[in-house]
Amino acid sequence: MKTFHQITLIFSAISLLLSCSATNNLSMTVSQPAPVELSPQVQRIGIINRSRPSEANKGFARIDAILTAEGLKLDEKGAEAALQGLADRLRQSGRFEVVAVLDSTPELDKGLKGLPAPLSQDQIVKVCDQYGLDALYSLSFFDTDTNVNLSIAQVLVPNALGVKIPVPGHQLDLVTRIRSGWRLYEPGLPLQDEMVYEDQFLLSAKGINPAEALQTLSYRTEKVMDQAHRTGFYNGGRLEPSRVRVGRQYFVRGSEPFVRGKRLAQTGAWNEAARLWEQELNHPKEKIAGRAAYNMAIINEINGNLDEAVQWAGDAYSIYGNRDALRYLRILQNRQNQQQRLEAQLSR
């Protein structure tokens, strides 16, 4: 009984601490620069396909021949869809004068089940000169693996009267894994980008026999092509800035203005809350003044004033000793660097 009371007291204490938290969470949308940057003069970009089914994958390819009407063409069709997805994204961006999917580059080594060696500078220059390109994307490999599981299951079939009754049958489960690798080259420069993607999906069906179950899974090729197109499209987005949600914390306890400011912030009246926080900058207690300075950094970041936010966060730590402000200061400084990169990208 004593142990039970001790546990109860511990949980009560934890609940009290959580309910009395000095901070609240908020989220905001911020802009981030593109993770991959090409030279400003890149206007004509080519896309090549170095992928082909690997020797190790021929066993699965034979399964493909049974499972889908496309058979051995599954990897080929998936690779074509991936190339088209990338081309669609690059054209949609409106950044490039030319986006060319090259039909054939027989002089380049093909990829097997993993990334082949990167293209040499001589190969990159040769292809770019031959087709009048400034940069080159490569689908370095594309591979699908399928795990097949066949089990006994009850299926419903209509009898002579049209009433469905359970009879012994089969369940077919197919897990298809799709892997693809991409590289991005510019003549005379180091490898600009390298990414590997992996996705999978499950398809299941029942039938009196495996062949009947298989008939309902004839759209597997379309699923592979759809996923491959989306992966190529997503990879092209690495050249574009993005908008992401980030989390922050702000102080809501310490004095009455903080409590009132919390209520205002929860209704979206952030500037009104900031006027209350500003009143506490001259509070006789350093802890309260430090929280006020920290919150002033928050409102300036919300309003897009990164330089002012950095100044307030720095004051909150250096003048008032608020340790949370030092971590926040690093976040803001990183945002400043990203903002500079973003502005440079947008000005091109």
Rank of each mutant, 00 (worst) to 15 (best):
G94F: 06
S138K: 03
E222Q: 14
F11K: 08
I302G: 01
E37A: 13
V125F: 06
T105S: 09
R341Q: 15
L139F: 13
G46N: 06
T231G: 02
S27K: 10
K223M: 15
I319D: 00
A205W: 04
E194D: 02
N149M: 02
R348H: 11
R253E: 04
A13N: 07
P116Q: 13
S204Q: 15
Q130A: 13
L136D: 02
S180K: 01
R263C: 01
D173I: 01
R50K: 05
E343M: 11
M296D: 02
A292H: 08
P168N: 15
A153G: 11
L119W: 05
E240C: 04
V175K: 14
D75Q: 15
S242E: 03
L133N: 07
A22N: 08
L119G: 03
L119F: 08
K223P: 03
I299L: 02
S140V: 12
V98I: 14
E343Y: 09
L342H: 05
L332V: 07
P257R: 13
A117G: 02
N300D: 13
A344Q: 14
P35V: 09
R335D: 12
P158Q: 11
Q130E: 09
R220E: 10
Q123A: 15
G321F: 08
F96W: 12
A325W: 09
A56E: 14
P210V: 11
D307W: 02
A273S: 11
Q84N: 10
A309I: 08
G254K: 04
Y219A: 14
K206Q: 15
K73E: 14
D315G: 00
V196P: 03
A297C: 08
D307M: 10
K58V: 11
N147Q: 14
T29W: 06
A205F: 00
P284F: 11
D307I: 13
L342R: 00
R275I: 10
A56R: 06
E280I: 05
L90P: 03
L112R: 08
D324H: 11
L9T: 11
I14F: 15
A313S: 15
E80Y: 01
R183P: 00
T146R: 05
C20D: 09
R50A: 09
D193V: 01
I331H: 00
F258H: 06
T29M: 04
N300W: 11
Q340F: 00
P187S: 12
Q32T: 04
E272R: 14
F142K: 03
G254I: 09
V259F: 08
R327H: 07
Y219T: 13
V125C: 01
A325R: 09
V127G: 02
E280R: 12
A313M: 01
Q333I: 08
K287Y: 07
N300T: 05
R330T: 07
S151P: 04
R91Q: 12
E55W: 12
G314Q: 13
I7V: 10
S51C: 05
L184E: 12
I288D: 06
K285G: 00
L191T: 12
R177T: 15
L139D: 00
M195E: 14
R220C: 10
R327T: 13
P158D: 14
E186R: 12
S318K: 10
A205M: 09
Q279D: 08
L67W: 05
A274D: 09
A309Q: 07
S151V: 15
N295A: 02
V310F: 04
L329I: 04
Q123W: 01
T267F: 05
G94M: 03
G59L: 03
V42H: 10
R230W: 07
A160F: 07
